[in-house]
Design a protein around this nucleic acid. Structure first.
Lengths: 211, 211
DNA sequence: TCGTGCCCATACTGTACGGTATAGTATGGT
DNA sequence: ACCATACTATACCGTACAGTATGGGCACGA
């Protein structure tokens, strides 16, 4: 029955959902989830609330979409950041530099993820969303660490545990940067990267003695 | 004019401000800052909003009072937790156990501090409030670490840097406990304490080779 | 040409909540 | 006896904002 074409829908504005998600992310990252209303998000995308509700059922769906936007960007950005690294150890170092800079310098990143943690406490969907992302980040770093260990340094036993510890410190660092801005100075950042690298490769600093 | 006395005020309900602060803290810690309104806080203290506004000028002052309540309790609790420790190293370990348990098991602690971090991003008063507390916690741990180093293990160089790294990891741990509840298992907690102790006393684990 | 989904805008509703105005009570000083 | 101050309760206001109702234009297929 019917002809062949006309499968189901015929969306003529497939760009809107991602555009709205991007607008939402930017506003959330600038002002926090609670301080942004749907009118602002719609306006930033060049439409009004009526249109927004065509693409998303409620604010929570927009929040989840903004989270996905963030996750995707993190992954492409970190891949790009380590692309120049020659050795595995160097790639690991570059990844750490990228992450530390994101945490300390990028205020938006800080505000957005802090807000996610807040929402996580009261919303299971946000929780699983972030959990998935965290799993990806952990897998990424575990890969880097094991690659770096194979060539060179002896080996800490459980790479995963080291990575967890490092990522925890990274989150704490993000929070601390909010009230101790002096850690944004280059020398401090360098020391922090060294400290995190020390967590991932404990034995590696046997020869150094200079801070 | 007037006689000498009559200094200033004559509070007949000096218990109300701390009572309200305590009520506020408990509600905030249970439901988050944004999900608690002033009527609830007043009701929990056995009064109404009108009275509440006699003692506190606005919600923000109540929030700051609730923070102070939390800080004070943390300090007395941790002092109590390490009281049984015989050696400095043992006291350090007890402090870590206490902190890790607070972060992982105590959901209220998690929700409250996460909310504080959120508010910190947009309110300078909350920022300095937390900053002061963080300074006290850091000083506390630096004292424990240097005491533990004097007797025994060789020495990591800068105790303060190690403590910062440890506290950052602790914060991250708190957040991670929100979406990976399996780390609340006793064995995991023990491993985490060991990991943090390893951050504070890097050399110390030369003999061990287990787990 | 007419209908039928897609997409968007305008206008509105309901409500939650921070804050205020105001009136009443209890107490302690003189 | 009187009054001022400390405190509490009730009722209300203003506003911000999530979500809805509704209608219009536009493409396309019949």
């Amino acid at each position: 029955m019917g002809t062949m074409k006309r499968a189901v829908t015929h969306p003529s504005a497939p760009h809107m959902p991602p555009l709205l998600a991007r607008s939402a992310f930017e506003l959330f990252a600038d002002s926090g989830f609670a301080n942004v209303n749907l009118d602002q998000i719609a306006a930033r995308a060049g439409v009004t609330k009526g249109s927004l509700y065509w693409h998303y059922r409620n604010k929570k769906e927009l929040i989840l979409a903004a989270c996905d936007h963030y996750y995707r960007h993190w992954q492409t950005d970190v891949e790009h950041a380590i692309a120049q690294g020659a050795s595995p150890l160097e790639r690991l170092r570059l990844a750490l530099v990228f992450s530390v800079d994101s945490c300390i310098i990028d205020t938006r990143n800080r505000l957005f993820t802090t807000g996610v943690f807040m929402l996580m406490q009261e919303d299971a969907d946000v929780r699983v969303s972030w959990s998935r992302f965290y799993g990806a980040v952990r897998a990424f770093y575990v890969g880097l660490v094991t690659a770096a260990q194979r060539e060179g340094t002896p080996s800490p036993r459980d790479a995963r545990r080291q990575v967890d510890l490092m990522l925890e410190a990274m989150e704490g660092l993000k929070l601390r940067a909010g009230f101790e801005p002096h850690i944004a100075r280059p020398a401090e950042r360098k020391a922090i990267v060294a400290g995190l690298l020390g967590v991932l490769c404990p034995i590696e600093r046997t020869g150094r003695r200079k801070t």
